[in-house]
Design a protein around this nucleic acid. Structure first.
Lengths: 121, 121
DNA sequence: CGGTGGTATTGATGGTTGTGAATACTCGCC
DNA sequence: GGCGAGTATTCACAACCATCAATACCACCG
């Protein structure tokens, strides 16, 4: 069990300046890149949108394999990466594992990337 | 010369729904991932912020090698990736190549990622 | 308790990528 | 024209990654 990684969700990116504000330090850049890497894959982008658009805001693995068209282990693997990045949360109820968006995580990421101060309308 | 790639800047991501709105198609996901991959690297994130924070909003390669601490060819390589992704623009004046943020590119990306409708304050 | 079905993990593999060394290119200048 | 400086490209290599097949895990049900 060496998964004692950082594990902090999107709090670390919330602490970063808006990217265009001031030069990013090497350490902040590394942590931010770790999050961005999680969504730098077409399959994982689709998984995020599928989960978000699914009814109830959550979906289990069996809901995702068919639309994506990849094997079940591969889907589980990508989901794990998204969970580790703090973008998805996993809720195992019985045999099924339900994944849902971590509230605010994607928005925090968007906030760091945007060059202007953004706020919900 | 096979660089007749897509080359469209951030227009393609502006055409995508906000990611959480509806399931992302395979093709949209691939194009979006191509852009996201460009910023999924600590060095390139730092380059973006360095360019943005530099005086005049532009910087040449020689301004960037020292703060980053990598070789000049490597910096040029990363800059090329950012330009190809439509996030940076290159303006060669004499011997110097000045890089600057493509206006709206990062914001378009942030808009696709955010789960709420965002607008500048 | 044995089976069944949903999910996670392991192992292997082909492909991608970040990096530096060496080198080529391209201006401006003497 | 030739030289020097800033930048880009090529080549090579180690590290990482996305994927699948096989298998293990685990909760429920008869």
């Amino acid at each position: 069990m060496k998964t004692a990684r950082v594990r902090r969700p999107a709090a670390i990116i919330a602490g970063c300046a808006p990217l265009a504000r001031e030069p990013l330090g090497a350490q902040d850049a590394a942590e931010l890149a770790r999050i961005v890497k999680a969504i730098a894959d077409p399959t994982r982008l689709r998984l995020l949108s599928l989960v978000a658009a699914h009814e109830g805001g959550e979906a289990c693995v069996c809901d995702l394999t068919d639309p994506i068209g990849l094997s079940q282990p591969t889907i589980s693997h990508h989901l794990k990466i998204l969970v580790d990045a703090g973008l998805l949360s996993r809720d195992k109820r019985g045999v099924w594992a339900y994944y849902s968006l971590v509230p605010g995580a994607l928005d925090a990421l968007a906030g760091v990337l945007s060059t202007t101060t953004l706020q919900p309308s």
